[in-house]
Simulated scan of single mutants.
Amino acid sequence: MPSEGRDRSVTASTFDIGGERAVRRLGFGAMHLPVSPAQDRERGIAVARHAVRLGVNLIDTAQLYSWGRNEELLAEALHPYPAELLVATKVGVAPPGPGRQADIDGRPEFLRSQVDEGLRRLRLDRIELLQLHRVDTKVPLADQVGALAELRTAGKIAHIGLSEVTVAQLAEAGKITEIATVQNRYSVLDREYEDVVDACAAAGIGFMPWRPVHPATVTPGEVTAVAAELDATPAQVALAWLLRRTPVMLPIPGTGSLAHLEENVAAAELSLTDEQFVRLDAVARP
């Protein structure tokens, strides 16, 4: 039988980030929204607005996505933001420049400057969820997380998240400041970070899986079989499995298509039977 947290026939539809900011558990990843040319940009704006109309109130972006233009697109589409909408962004990757490639940069002074740039581009006075995009192995983790904690004290950040971290890094960061979310790669067929999911579930930390449906949408197998049984799509089944996996799971599927957006959002209403959940859970267990 699956362990507790894997066998929930009913799960909450919302989660309180940081224990205080309620969001619907199925969010939206803005990475795939086109920012140019103008005609495609208008489509990106339309998708972002439609996500909010469908009830999505957790949107994830990053300065890395088109080097800030993704943040600017969201501001153009959605500002002034509805009171219930939380726009999360990420910092910690330096753009390419003359003679250098893009690279992870966790220096406190760089993180502070990126937060200020994010505030400006998103037209915010405070970022509700600011995530460290990657841990910079060249900089002590305490310095990186400590810089974000100082920005929270200054009122520029409400909650702090991490991305692509191990259980040990999560524990180390948690000794410095409260961590509200973790964003690692994870899906029904990609379970490398199973231990991180379990650690987040135990601590009540929101887990935002990126790439939450691939490769389930392109790999024939149990996901496809369950989709046929439920008259659903493989992507919907993959998202339904994530939502049932643990109440702290906050999938953020991304798309630049209105049709795919509606398909993804509808997955929140898809119910797996206990037998279907167990079959899916067993497909890629570590």
Rank of each mutant, 00 (worst) to 15 (best):
L162T: 05
N184H: 01
I160L: 04
L162G: 04
L162D: 06
W210C: 12
F207A: 11
L189V: 08
G161W: 10
A173W: 15
Y186C: 05
Q183N: 08
V182L: 03
V167E: 09
A199Q: 02
E172L: 09
V182I: 03
T166L: 08
V197Y: 00
A168D: 08
A199W: 00
L162R: 07
N184S: 03
I160E: 02
E178G: 12
V167Y: 10
L189R: 03
D198A: 15
I157S: 09
L170I: 05
K156E: 07
R191I: 04
A158C: 02
R185T: 08
R191T: 07
W210H: 12
A202M: 09
G204I: 12
V165S: 04
P209A: 13
E194D: 14
W210G: 12
A199I: 02
A158K: 08
E172D: 13
R185C: 03
V188M: 05
R191N: 01
E172K: 04
N184A: 04
R185I: 02
L170M: 05
I160T: 05
I179M: 13
V165N: 05
R211C: 14
E178Y: 00
E164I: 06
A158F: 00
V196F: 01
V197E: 06
N184W: 00
G206P: 13
K175G: 12
W210A: 14
E178A: 13
G174I: 03
V196D: 03
N184M: 02
Y193S: 02
E194S: 05
A180Y: 11
V197R: 04
V182N: 00
E192R: 15
H159D: 04
Y186T: 13
C200Y: 04
